[in-house]
């Protein structure tokens, strides 16, 4: 599923069909995790199940990781995250959606990676090469600006913005992935949106509003 389609699905799915919450009333409606069977196979170390899980989740995890650490290091981190997933899958309790749990592992790996590299939020654009496979014409100026501005956000704000705006997670899922209170998600998103807009303007973006 492409990101655009996923966004569309996330945005337009009827609330009662949501696999985790009914946002209008805030009442959790847990249903069977669509990945439950695959996850069960992974718990047994089944290589076919591991491959299926990878096929189902790797694009979304890669998007998140690439936004968090840059594409240069995203491939290595994606490998590490999946190895962590397969090693720690016995610890997955099943109380939340598997993908939320995987997002949490990925974000933790990204934060640890950034600590190891001791990068500041501002140094990523300098050593982040433009993907040579994509011509400049394919990347609009706005896209580049957003990526640069995102890279300048603090990792915690970047993570919450990506999880909401790019991955389309609900507040409940974001809270589980970032291990924060659900009530904190909104205020942190306020900060992320305000700071991202400020960075964009500093980088030359001309807002319509």
């Amino acid at each position: 599923m492409s990101r655009a389609n996923l966004q569309h699905w996330r945005r337009n799915v009827p609330h009662g069909v949501s696999n985790l919450v009914v946002p209008d009333v805030g009442t959790p409606v847990p249903i069977a995790d669509p990945l439950a069977d695959i996850v069960a196979g992974c718990r047994l170390g089944n290589r076919h199940a591991q491959r299926l899980l990878y096929d189902r989740c790797h694009e979304r995890l890669y998007r998140l990781i690439a936004r968090m650490v840059g594409q240069q290091d995203a491939t290595d981190l994606l490998q590490q995250v999946f190895l962590q997933v397969f090693v720690k899958i016995g610890q997955f309790s099943g109380s939340a959606c598997f993908e939320t749990w995987a997002y949490r592992l990925a974000i933790n790996e990204c934060l640890q990676f950034r600590r190891r590299k001791s990068r500041t939020p501002c140094d990523m654009p300098a050593d982040e090469p433009i993907d040579p496979s994509a011509s400049h014409t394919e990347r609009t100026q706005h896209q580049e600006l957003v990526e640069l501005a995102l890279a300048q956000l603090k990792p915690e704000l970047r993570a919450i913005f990506v999880l909401r705006e790019i991955e389309g997670l609900s507040y409940r899922e974001i809270a589980a992935a970032l291990q924060i209170e659900q009530g904190t998600v909104g205020s942190r998103l306020n900060q992320a949106r305000s700071q991202l807009r400020k960075r964009l303007i500093e980088l030359g973006w001309n807002p319509k509003t």
């Binding site: 655009a4 496979s133 609009t140 706005h142 896209q143 790019i166 991202l196 319509k208």
Partner: peptide
């Protein structure tokens, strides 16, 4: 406006 901008950013391709 920000949300629309984010929705348009390029989707990185997994190597």
């Amino acid at each position: 406006e920000l949300s629309a901008l984010a929705a348009d950013i390029c989707e990185p391709e997994v190597p």
